[in-house]
Amino acid sequence: MEVSKNSFKTLSEPVKQFGGLVGIIFLIFLTFFVLNNIFGEGDELVAKMKIEEERIAEERKLNKLISSLPSGVLVSFDGTDNFKLSDELYEAVCKATKLIPQRAIMGANFLNFRAHEIYTINGNKIDETFVKWDDEKNKCFAGFVVSGNNVGVDETVKVSGEALSFLSTGIDTRVYFIKNF
């Protein structure tokens, strides 16, 4: 022990400083390793961050696509003067769309009297709306849920159908026609 102390003293000053630096760096790494094991989520956190990064990248891509579309009505069917979406664009627009305006809801309610009743009684209130791409059917589905008290009975009605047209405002897209027949 005494010999090692003496041999340390005999070392030159730069070597001692370098050894100290290496020691401090090792201590920092060790501290972070211990803290990460105690508080960190490790691989799980990295995986979550990757998913979030991919989601942001996908959203940016979709936003870029939406801003490149013409403003107005975008349709997925033939026979109108409106902008006809290709299959690829139809899927992308569907995935980027979140909003369903009142007129689309009122149109879908034509074929669902119960939904229309609850919608009217509750002051046009909508509990939930959804727009989703069905990979199996290769179609875009949209819908909404209305609930409320109708003549003393609590009711919940879900209306859904194919989203066949969209309104492009230049900033976002909205479902414009839900075919529920």
Binding site: V75, F77, G107, F110, L164, S165, Y176, F177, K179, F181
Partner: peptide, 8 residues
Amino acid sequence: ILFFPDGS
């Protein structure tokens, strides 16, 4: 007569 957006 009601015309739906898809032509129905």
